[in-house]
Design a protein around this nucleic acid. Sequence first.
DNA 1: CGCTGTGTGTGTATCGATATACTCCTGAGC
DNA 2: GCTCAGGAGTATATCGATACACACACAGCG
Lengths: 338, 338
Amino acid sequence: MVTMRDVAAEAGVSPMTVSNALTGRRPVSEATRRTVLEAVDRLGYQVNVAARSLRQGRTGVVGIAVPTLDSHYYSRLAHRLVRAFSQAGLATVVEETHASREGELAAFRDSRLNAYDGLVIAALGLTEREINALSREVPVVVLGEQELHQTVDHVSMPNVDGAEAATRLLLERGCRRLAIVGFPTLTDLEDVTLPEGAAFVLRAEGFARVVREHGATASAAYAGVTQAAGVACARDLLTRGEAPDGIFCVTDTLAFGVVRGLADHGVRVPDDVLVVGFDDVEDAEFHIPSLTSVAPDLEGLVGQTVHLLARRIASPRALPQDVTVSYRVVERESTTRP
Amino acid sequence: MVTMRDVAAEAGVSPMTVSNALTGRRPVSEATRRTVLEAVDRLGYQVNVAARSLRQGRTGVVGIAVPTLDSHYYSRLAHRLVRAFSQAGLATVVEETHASREGELAAFRDSRLNAYDGLVIAALGLTEREINALSREVPVVVLGEQELHQTVDHVSMPNVDGAEAATRLLLERGCRRLAIVGFPTLTDLEDVTLPEGAAFVLRAEGFARVVREHGATASAAYAGVTQAAGVACARDLLTRGEAPDGIFCVTDTLAFGVVRGLADHGVRVPDDVLVVGFDDVEDAEFHIPSLTSVAPDLEGLVGQTVHLLARRIASPRALPQDVTVSYRVVERESTTRP
DNA sequence: CGCTGTGTGTGTATCGATATACTCCTGAGC
DNA sequence: GCTCAGGAGTATATCGATACACACACAGCG
């Protein structure tokens, strides 16, 4: 491997001058700068990051830890975050936590910990207490899957409000027998702990509140987070008493499954039942029927995340911020009466 | 920061003994091992990866570079690769190249280069020559988007064969006016260079070959790789002379767009036209209509990739292998005549 | 009894880049 | 003519973990 020392020899200067010429940390005369750069080209020199970061204690890389990449929502979120950090001049690596406590601890603790200058994590498995403890050791921004209490930088989705809006939309469109897919019950909501974390609870809360306010009837079904789970929930709802005429799904992914599951039983959307999702993933626009969905302001979420993490890296003791981004409901065919 | 030296002092041994106790690289008596581990716990010691990898020249991390995570296919592929490497005991980080030459060079060269022990790259922008040159400097497995010539480990999809099978399926189902979506022409195929690389060319080749053999007529449309592009292509095909009755889309993503675009013009799948995709992404099963697709053996692809990279890391001068995985055609509603 | 071998542990040099303190030189100012 | 500021470059120590050579005790063996 060719080192800075080799470049220095080739250029007839000291290693330190090579370092200064390359990083610009200290001034170097124009002439020697050129000589150095030529030597670098000739030898094909590349800086050794391990050595640099050992010395500097920083790596210039931020980690992005998401539960899985095999998801409409998280793959898109990771993509947007990467792009935003890149525009801010920060390199990124993406890590999957498999929605497990261990995976999330790994993102914090693992050997790679001191390889990141900061971490963005969509935490599902860790408790608030754990997150608080860990956040003292490394700059971190938590993405909104938990309710936290101003102890760590936190950017969250408008879970309750968005769910309320979605549910109201169903009622406005004339639905009277509502259902929620992605949550197992409508009583004692806060006692339920799902593997997917608190976002689902908050969305269920919003749904339940509007149902209560309007004195509507509602049922609930839960079988997981995948499209297949959506299919199962649809079947479940159809074989149970009176079928719903409006379904709120806590994610678009579930909604896709639900629509598919309904179709399997000859139930048409929107003719027989209206469906609303949450997240407004790209596919919502292209499915048949296209899916009405709650669209959180992803750009805002990503922008805030980058901003907060950069701020925290710069000043580790800054006061933690808690931001909730805005949303809008994008209405499409799945709630448009024919 | 607490270092190995601190642990050594706490445990009353030398740093070297701590290292040996933790890595197991050299034997340590059971008693001192326990003492060391207790000291580690008490102080909350974590190894500094920068120092370790500077000394060892290895990091235990492999990089996975894909064009984008905002894609049905690549996000799933990245997910599977991460899982497979993890099962093989290797940590991974995922990087996006934005399908650009620069992004791919970055994956190789960027400061983080010497931070990976190996690289898996789905290269679209680099030339064969460049890949060959770079592959001499770092263990790399190229995922099948290029035709390479046994100069680098390479795992590829059954692009030509799969496309042929898909096209034959359309003919068998009675289609006579075929179309391909995702490729701009059917003459001088090999002269076309798409931003998406050679996979599209190969799929077009398979399509064109079968069309030729059967003396069928065919048209072509291209507008990019997204679902929106699929919509545009559908519109394009419908407004141009006689509409096709069978469409082969070079990716499922395009196919989703095409089906949607057709629906926008009142053309129904499969009633009026049959559609086949390629990749068999998860959504293919859940769309309405569900999408017939060429399903490459992803498990095989991922397994081979892990195997080849591990092998190359172990023995850098091993003879390069070129593997093409198998495929099957999964027939669903989009090609099932009502 | 001396000699080799094995099992444990320690000291030292090293990986490559860079922070820091230092030297040298040129030119301005009085 | 002399001092002093500051620009350009260099020597050295250091970040933390570990490869390597070495030390030492004790067992087995001829």
